[in-house]
C-alpha cells in the first residue's frame, strides 16, 4: 500500500510497477514528501552545474534537470529518467552551492526512486551490474563484503587485488577485531538483526519491488530469508 497523504507521499507502491505514463511519473516526483525541500524554484544560474563533477565528464547538467522538472514537460522528464539522471554522482556539491538552497542531487534521487519503483525499462539495464550489492544488502544489510573484491571484477585496480582475494579467510582472521573476522559479510551480522531487517523490507515494500523487477534475484533472497527466519524461530 502506498503512503498516500493527499498531496504528498512517503513512498511508492510496488504494485504500481508498470504505471509509466509520463504524467503519472511527474506527479510521483512532485508529490514525494521531500520534493519541496529539493526544489524551491530555480534562477537558471548554473551554479550547480559549475561545480558538478558529472557535468565535467558527461552530457549532464543538474541545472537542466531542475529546469526540466519545473517546466512541467512530463515527456521530457520521462526521457531524462531513462539514462540522463543516472550520471549524477550523488555528491551534493550542487545542494551546498545553490543560491536557492535547492538540492538537484536530492531531486535526482527522487527521480531515480520513481524510475525504479515504476519499473522503467532502463532500470533493468542499470541495475544489472548491481546484482551482487543488492543480494548482500537484501539478505544481510551489508552492501560491500570482503569476498566481493575479486580480480575478475576489478582488473583495473591493479596487481595487488589478487593478493586481497587469496587466502581471504586467514587474512580476515588476522584482523584483530572479532566482528571483522569473516569473509562473506563486512562484519558478523546476528541472525536476529537480519530477521528485523526483513520485516522492514516487507513493511516498506522493498521485497515486493525486487520480486517485481528482478524475480531471479528475489528467489535467491527469499531462500536466504527463509533460512535465517527458521534459524531464529527455532532458537526461540
Amino acid at each position: 500500500m502506498s503512503q498516500d497523504l493527499g498531496d504528498v507521499h512517503l513512498r511508492l507502491d510496488p504494485d504500481d510497477v508498470g504505471i509509466q505514463d509520463a504524467d503519472s511519473l511527474l506527479k510521483a516526483i512532485r508529490t514525494d514528501v521531500r520534493y519541496h525541500e529539493a526544489v524551491h524554484g530555480c534562477l537558471n544560474c548554473g551554479v550547480c552545474s559549475g561545480s558538478c563533477p558529472s557535468h565535467r565528464f558527461f552530457d549532464y547538467s543538474p541545472r537542466v534537470v531542475v529546469q526540466t522538472v519545473l517546466s512541467g514537460d512530463a515527456e521530457a522528464v520521462k526521457d531524462m529518467m531513462d539514462e540522463y539522471i543516472w550520471a549524477c554522482a550523488q555528491c551534493y556539491t550542487c545542494a551546498m552551492r545553490c543560491p536557492l538552497q535547492n538540492s538537484p542531487g536530492g531531486l535526482v534521487m527522487i527521480m531515480r526512486e520513481v524510475a525504479v519503483w515504476r519499473g522503467m525499462e532502463a532500470v533493468h539495464r542499470l541495475l544489472k551490474p548491481y546484482g551482487r550489492v543488492l543480494l548482500k544488502v537484501l539478505s544481510l544489510g551489508n552492501q560491500l563484503t570482503p569476498d566481493m573484491i575479486q580480480p575478475d571484477f576489478f582488473p583495473d585496480w591493479g596487481p595487488k587485488i589478487p593478493w586481497s582475494s587469496t587466502d581471504l579467510a586467514i587474512k580476515r582472521k588476522a584482523i584483530p577485531v572479532y566482528t571483522l573476522q569473516v569473509t562473506t559479510s563486512a562484519w558478523r551480522v546476528s541472525p536476529e538483526t537480519s530477521y528485523e531487517l526483513y520485516t522492514i523490507y516487507e513493511e516498506t515494500g522493498v521485497f515486493k519491488l525486487i520480486e517485481q523487477i528482478d524475480p531471479n534475484l528475489y528467489e535467491v533472497v527469499a531462500d536466504m530469508v527463509e533460512e535465517v527466519r527458521d534459524t531464529v524461530d527455532s532458537a526461540q
Partner: peptide, 11 residues
C-alpha cells in the same frame, strides 16, 4: 545502495 540504485525508499 539507495544512492546508487534507488531500490529502497525513505521509510
Amino acid at each position: 545502495n539507495y544512492h546508487g540504485s534507488g531500490t529502497s525508499n525513505l521509510v
